[in-house]
Simulated assay, not measured.
Amino acid sequence: MKKGVFSLALAMVFGVATATEPVAEEKKEVKTETSSITWKAYKVTGSHYGNVNLKSGTLVFEGDKLTGGEFEADMTTLVATDVEGESKGKLEGHLKSDDFFGTEKHTAAKLVFTKVEATGKNSYEVTGDLTIKDITKPVTFDVSVYGSKATATVKVDRTAYDIKYGSGSFFDNLGDKAIYDEFDLVVDLEF
């Protein structure tokens, strides 16, 4: 009887110790060749869209819960996919110029997660520091994780990063030449 009680007490102590051990943090490298960042920008007369390549990325998990992440995009790879020919070259050149992203000087954009809150089984609300043109501002967005894939849509106010060209918030009488301040990033990750 004493041996049975002692065994039960030991099992309870070790069971509790095991249950309270912290789950190890695991960093998962994002596969840049199969992941994508799609951008879409809006103007009074329509929109433009395209891609930019992911240079590097890491998602951090504790068990199966997302707890962090860090990403870098190669801004020199910025392309428009909705136009062709001369229009494509002009648009891409303008987007890479100092009027917009100044990619000659600012070759990368970076996002670092600062807060991750679970909102459902595979859903999270993430706040992160987004750096564009060496200006860092917080952004909040939703992330969904399923197996080895994650998706997010991030709405970015370009004027917060000193990208004011064609903005009705800063210039009057633009008419149909106005470009809306916010653009979207749709991010599909594989890890």
Rank of each mutant, 00 (worst) to 15 (best):
V16A: 14
T151W: 02
Y42I: 05
G57S: 04
S36N: 15
V145G: 01
A73G: 06
A80L: 09
K27R: 12
K164M: 02
V116M: 08
R158Q: 00
D74R: 10
F183V: 02
K133S: 08
S167C: 04
D184G: 03
A41M: 06
Y161G: 00
E104F: 10
F14H: 04
P138L: 08
F141C: 07
T127S: 13
S169D: 10
A109C: 12
E33M: 10
E84V: 12
S36L: 13
V60K: 08
H106I: 04
L95S: 03
I132H: 14
E33P: 02
V186W: 02
K43M: 05
T153S: 10
A80T: 15
T45R: 12
L185W: 07
F61H: 06
T107M: 06
K27V: 12
S56A: 14
T67N: 01
F71K: 07
A108W: 02
G93P: 11
S7Y: 05
H94Q: 13
L130T: 12
V154W: 04
L130K: 08
T34P: 12
D176S: 12
T77N: 05
A19P: 04
G57A: 09
I132M: 12
K133M: 01
V30A: 12
K164W: 00
E25Y: 10
G15P: 05
G63D: 14
K155V: 08
D172L: 01
H48P: 06
T103A: 11
D142P: 01
S36F: 08
E29F: 13
T81Y: 13
N173P: 07
M75F: 11
S7F: 11
F113K: 08
V139L: 09
S148R: 08
G46L: 11
F101V: 13
M1Y: 01
A152W: 03
L91D: 08
T38N: 09
K43A: 09
A17M: 14
T38D: 14
T153I: 15
V52M: 15
G102C: 11
K88P: 09
G89H: 07
D64N: 14
T18Y: 15
G57T: 02
F183G: 06
K90C: 08
D188R: 02
K110D: 12
I132Q: 13
D188G: 08
L66D: 11
D142R: 06
E72H: 04
F141H: 10
L8A: 15
A118D: 05
G168L: 00
G46D: 11
I37D: 02
S144P: 00
S148M: 03
T77P: 05
G57F: 13
K31P: 03
V126L: 04
N51P: 05
K96F: 12
K90V: 09
I37R: 03
T114F: 03
V16L: 15
L130C: 07
T131R: 01
V186F: 04
D176L: 00
T159S: 05
L95P: 03
L189M: 10
A9N: 01
